[in-house]
Design a protein around this nucleic acid. Structure first.
Length: 112
DNA sequence: TCCGTGACGCGAT
DNA sequence: CATCGCGCCACGG
């Protein structure tokens, strides 16, 4: 498993019941600002994670169909309140404490 | 190695 | 509020 994925998984596990976060926030907390797509990718292939607690920016569910319904039900079961199609982030967003994990090496870019 | 593919983010229209 | 475009990035064919 890549170091990136491990950090992302560890970060997602920190979101407590009754709180939510976003793909972008998880990516930043894990040390990979801008890697929101990898957070989604990781959620898509990992088991045992509180996946329902990760939302898109603005607190909207990014899943489609039945999965979206299930996510909403799971969150409401944790006490999360929706305002229309999104959750009130000001009230429910989990603030990640500053991590002590060393910053990962920025990805090397080819062809300066 | 190139290229398409996402459970994305954000500013512009 | 709905769409679009573009940047982002690991993966897999």
């Amino acid at each position: 498993m890549s170091d990136m994925r491990q950090r992302i998984v560890a970060t997602i596990r920190k979101i407590p019941r009754g709180k939510v976060s976003t793909y972008g926030a998880v990516a930043r907390a894990a040390g990979y600002p801008g890697a929101s797509r990898q957070v989604a990718w990781t959620l898509h292939r990992s088991f045992g994670l509180p996946w329902q607690r990760v939302l898109g920016a603005g607190g909207e569910i990014k899943l489609r169909g039945d999965s979206a319904i299930e996510q909403r039900l799971r969150l409401e079961a944790e006490g999360i309140v929706f305002r229309g199609r999104r959750v009130n982030m000001a009230q429910h967003e989990f603030k990640f404490p500053l991590s002590k994990m060393p910053r990962p090496r920025p990805k090397k870019k080819l062809r300066a």
